[in-house]
Design a protein around this nucleic acid. Structure first.
Length: 491
RNA sequence: GGUCUCUUGGCCGAGUGGCUAGGCAGCGGUCUGCAAAACCGUGUACGGCGGUUCGAAUCCGCCAGAGACCUCCA
């Protein structure tokens, strides 16, 4: 690549040329899910966005260490109850359910869903529960440096003191005075010096079952701490990119900066990247609004808002068709449009394998290619890259239709470009509809029926030929009469 | 209430001070026994009102509407 890769840095609010800390290597940390319930449509966004980043950086030749955590401690207790089928008494429930059971169950679901979406696994997937010691050590250094204080077995971060020396609010564009006047006063915060101080270590209440011993109390780490501790552990005291959803900017990422700075004396992250939200009818998806759709429901179509099932690839394509920093509004219409567009793109990839070549090309294949990469280099602009991919689709179809010609060298280049862009970078794949054994039997039967239909056609017995076509269509096999003969495929 | 963002053709969505993506849907045509697919042609959209400018949908102001964060959140 001869042009620079540019990314938007939330910290500076500008697009910056990406320069890794170490030549040829990239350290990438992304906030992963809290595994207390099924993964939902919202989880698809950051994971696909940063999967694209991971894939593209890799394609550019970087050796990427991608760390994405699993949050499996902290506020888990409350959430377990909220999944509430019915109101089993708290105590009974806590006695019956091992928290790690909940964690394991939803972590498995998450992994399965990510695989369906063709999201590559990260290089390291650390769990907060496995890094309690690292977190405790970090608390030690924060306290030692004077930015943390103990109160009644819990440890809090002293935001006001930190802000005297550093800038609390630099990422989210807030200043402490505003926060002071606008933070809601909540009950039970009396042990904190200020309401905006946040917990580094929380003493566990008697019924809280996830707890670890410490010199302060039996308790659990504060919810911002894991990312600071684990990113530093695996990527070093300074690393390239930290990603996550926009809703994490404040307070989560702001607190991460404060913790790391308070502990190490300097910031760790060079580029902050934030993906925007998915909305439904213009509103963020939330349990309380009743517009919450899990990935499982999306793939099966089993939800009142869904008119049909949507394949994982249709969801992936839908998300890639919007820029990651824009909100994207969910609707059946939009998803159906993506589904059809994806089909068109994937058909063109099959067509690419069947094209006949000519002496000279009448098309310029370098244009879509260059524009595609230019788009990705410009802050990962996947929608524009896809637009240029469709320009190429028109070329491919024109060659097939015979209105344009392509040389063998151009065809080879075009194939290689489409394979890299569509499969390796965008991470799309042809969907499998049946296993290969079934396919063989099915193919034999379909070929036989096509043969019978051809005989009927030869006799101008349109009733029979249409019947065969319609019946096959009804069970999911689509026939097309082309100049080269009859083509068929599973719908 | 505070901070911030957004408002693009039927739908989704890029982009940008003049050369005005793309997908889906629609319409007309070619092809076909018909259909499908494919191909060709077709839409001067940028919330409203002012201002700056030779020129703004793109910059500025005001108004209206929507949303995000401020509490767990992707």
């Amino acid at each position: 690549m001869n042009s620079d890769f540019i990314i938007y840095n939330t910290l500076t609010r500008t697009k910056e040329i990406f320069k890794p800390l170490v030549e040829g290597k990239v350290g990438l940390y992304v906030c992963g899910p809290t595994v207390y319930s099924d993964s939902h449509l919202g989880h698809a966004r950051p994971n696909i966005t940063f999967d694209l980043l991971f894939r593209y950086l890799t394609f550019l030749g970087y050796k990427v260490r991608y760390v994405r955590n699993i949050t499996d401690v902290g506020h888990l207790e409350d959430e377990v109850e909220e999944t509430g089928e019915d109101k089993i008494s708290k105590k009974a429930r806590l006695e019956q359910v091992e928290p790690m059971e909940v964690v394991q169950k939803y972590m498995n679901t998450f992994h399965h869903n990510m695989e369906q979406l063709n999201v590559l696994p990260p290089s390291i997937e650390p769990r907060a529960s496995g890094h309690i010691i690292e977190q405790q050590l970090m608390i030690d250094s924060i306290v030692k440096n004077g930015f943390g204080y103990e109160a009644n077995g819990s440890v809090y971060f002293d935001v006001e003191k930190y802000n005297q020396q550093y800038n609390y609010g630099k990422l989210s564009g807030r200043n402490l005075d505003d926060i002071k006047t606008n933070t809601r006063e909540l009950d039970g915060q009396s042990e904190k010096k200020n309401s905006f101080d946040f917990a580094l270590w929380k003493k566990a209440s008697p019924e809280h079952i996830m707890r670890w011993p410490s010199k302060w109390s039996d308790g659990f780490p504060g919810w911002h701490l894991e990312c600071s501790a684990m990113s530093t552990k695996y990527l070093g005291e300074q690393f390239d990119i930290h990603g996550g959803g926009m809703d994490l900017t404040f307070p989560h990422h702001e607190c991460e900066i404060a913790q790391s700075t308070a502990s190490l004396g300097h910031e760790t992250v060079r580029y902050w990247m934030h993906n925007n939200m998915i909305t439904i009818d213009g509103q963020k998806m939330a349990r309380s609004l009743g517009n919450f759709i899990t990935l499982q429901e999306l793939f099966s179509g089993n939800h009142k808002l869904l008119k049909q099932a949507y394949s994982p690839m249709a969801i992936r394509f839908f998300i890639l068709q919007a820029h990651y920093r824009s909100t994207i509004d969910f609707s059946n219409e939009a998803l159906q449009a993506s589904e059809k567009g994806l089909e068109r793109l994937m058909n063109a990839l099959k067509t690419l394998e069947e094209l006949t070549t000519s002496e000279k090309s009448t098309i310029d294949i370098s244009t879509p290619k260059e524009k595609c990469f230019a788009a990705l280099n410009d802050d990962l602009n996947s929608p524009v890259a896809i637009a240029h991919l469709f320009d190429g689709v028109r070329m491919i179809n024109s060659v097939k239709a015979g209105t344009e010609k392509i040389s063998s060298t151009d065809l080879a280049e075009l194939k290689s470009f489409y394979h890299s862009m569509v499969f390796d970078i965008l991470g799309l794949k042809q969907e499998q509809t049946a296993d290969s054994a079934n396919n063989e039997i099915l193919a034999g039967a379909v070929v036989l029926l096509i043969k019978l239909r051809n005989e009927a056609k030869a006799n101008k017995d349109w009733a029979t030929s249409d019947k065969i076509r319609n019946e096959l269509n009804a069970i999911g096999v689509e026939l097309k009469d082309t100049k080269e003969g009859v083509e068929w495929k599973l719908k």
